[in-house]
């Protein structure tokens, strides 16, 4: 077992410093609290440095650190839930924002009709898209955002989400549907307004 050289360690430290802001934004979308997000990232980075020697190879270093962060985020979410710092599920804002997208007869309201976002690849490489995405995520009601993040950012199955959050799978699908509709409306406003 060859321990990493000092030079390698320094290089990795620099790489960690470079990804840190993005890691914090990622954690914040889920934890809904900047200080807690910074703590989670801090813990992940410390764990990465401590376990530095157990990481082999260099290309997947950030991926490895990101994996550690995901665990830390899950830990923090569990702690939040234990401490009762989540709003009761029933308090989540009503369906107004969603109902506004549809007419009485269930068809799209003219103003809310989805239009094309263009090439997804172009969206994903656009800084502007990600700013809008972050902004729209932060605008979601907290519990809705947590469920969406667990599913779409962390990649948990709805079954696992039920275990983590104590809600029923059916409820989970309802929340995800609302989250997606709210996000699509918000992103469409922010994304198309500037890119067109």
């Amino acid at each position: 077992m060859s321990a990493s050289t000092t030079e390698e360690k320094n290089e990795r430290m620099q790489r960690l410093a470079a990804v840190r802001p993005r890691l914090v934004s990622f954690a914040r979308l889920q934890l809904r609290d900047l200080a807690q997000a910074e703590d989670a990232v801090q813990e992940a980075l410390i764990a990465a440095m401590e376990k530095n020697d157990s990481f082999q190879g260099r290309s997947g270093y950030e991926t490895w650190v990101f994996g550690i962060l995901k665990y830390k985020i899950l830990d923090s979410l569990r702690a939040q839930r234990r401490q009762g710092s989540w709003q009761p599920w029933e308090d989540e804002p009503d369906e107004d924002a969603i109902d506004r997208q549809f007419k009485q007869n269930g068809r799209w309201e003219e103003a809310a009709r989805p239009s094309s976002w263009g090439d997804p690849e172009a969206a994903f490489v656009s800084e502007h898209f990600w700013r809008v995405f972050d902004m729209c995520m932060l605008a979601l009601p907290d519990n809705t955002a947590r469920i969406f993040s667990l599913r779409e950012l962390m990649g948990l199955s709805t079954e696992d989400i039920c275990r983590e959050t104590g809600i029923k799978e059916n409820n989970c699908w309802v929340i995800l549907h609302r989250a997606r509709l709210r996000l699509r409306a918000c992103i469409e406003r922010g994304w198309l307004s500037e890119s067109s």
């Binding site: 990804v19 990101f66 976002w117 779409e152 950012l153």
Partner: peptide, 30 residues
Amino acid sequence: ECNKQFELLHLTGHEYQNLILDTDTASGSS
């Protein structure tokens, strides 16, 4: 279009990760 948008949202986790992992190579911070 809505369906395409949902599908795009479904990819955000994967793409967000790519974005994070690209940071240091793209910005040439090293």
